[in-house]
Nucleic acid binder design. Structure first.
Lengths: 195, 195
DNA sequence: GTCTATAGAAAGATAGAC
DNA sequence: GTCTATCTTTCTATAGAC
């Protein structure tokens, strides 16, 4: 039985963030109240303000952390040689990374409009950086004559939308494993770019 | 100068719905207040309840109407002969229809979680019906040996995600016309299914 | 570090005057 | 059909006891 008082800042802080991510994903940022969040964590509403200055910071920090994780993980991902190998690496990485944290993906995509302007700009810059990684691969493949992409910018957006869409329907324990899904989507990506 | 009193039910009703769609798309359902909506329409908050029993009905009606419009428009769309022609018709139709009503698309996609369970089930059924249209095309093309699709269910979801994604970045008056976009995306769809 | 209590603002929805 | 006024609830955030 956990005691009701004492120091828990090392534990409660992460629990607040985890609960916020879960609730923001399920109900939406605007629909989540600080009382509801506190109840999920198991503390009173006032205690939340020990871990975040306000609700907006909670949202921004979660999205910022997600984008930082994404870029850091891609940076150390083994990519192989040449545009085709790199495109395959990107496709499989994107699906795998996103399926491992569906709540963060959902929040980062759906709650952009609830960010205050300055916060929005910072997240957008990170998202753009990630897009540029894929576009670089497509441009290289196009330049080498490996791909047949009429417009690398549009292809970038189209492929990311397609790959990210996996998180909207994939359910653990369903008909297909993550590896199956990665394989099937990689097949479609490869064909879509004419490789 | 419009007078401030008198009968406007024929005009105000549609204006309420149009303003709700616009605000729901920009701020999100949960973040829009009835007072804010009333201000957008140019009436007082109380007057809104002449046109909707409550806020939830406003959301559901907008989404229901969008899905009905979508299915009705596809039903009368010229589709040509054979799976390849039908897939092209679907791809171009989907992009064109969605680009003509970006707010409705955005709301119908982002606000599903704010529907009460019964309303959610009704919208989901309509969305499923639309998906089945595309899946039928893919299955037919696969059966005839025209397409090389490893999994028609996944391909359906992947292609719809890709095509719908256009609404997140397309801006009127930009580098590409709607017809350009339709052409480029159709090219990627065709390749993705191995046709 | 967490609690209770509450300030102050804003929400959804309704009543009744005009 | 629209307005003003208001009921009731809920919200974010803070103050102060323990």
């Amino acid at each position: 039985m956990a005691r009701k008082t004492g120091s828990h800042s090392d534990i409660t802080g992460p629990r607040v963030r985890a609960a916020a991510l879960r609730l923001f994903a399920r109900q939406g940022y605007a629909a989540v109240s600080m009382r509801g969040l506190a109840a999920e964590v198991g503390v009173q509403a006032g205690a939340l303000y020990l871990y975040t200055p306000d609700k907006q910071s909670l949202l921004f920090d979660l999205m910022k952390e997600h984008m930082d994780d994404l870029l850091a993980a891609w940076a150390i991902e083994p990519k192989g040689e040449g545009p085709l190998a790199r495109l395959e690496a990107f496709s499989r990485f994107h699906i795998r990374f996103n399926l491992e944290r569906p709540d963060a993906v959902f929040v980062s995509y759906m709650e952009l409009r609830n960010l205050e302007p300055e916060n929005f700009a910072r997240i957008e810059a990170l998202r753009k950086t990630y897009e540029t990684e894929l576009e670089g691969i497509l441009k290289a493949g196009q330049a080498e004559g490996l791909f047949a992409v009429p417009d690398t910018k549009l292809a970038t957006l189209a492929l990311i939308a397609m790959l990210t869409g996996v998180t909207t329907w994939y359910r653990e324990g369903g008909r297909l494993s993550r590896a199956d899904v990665g394989q099937i989507y990689w097949d479609m990506v490869r064909k879509a770019v004419g490789a």
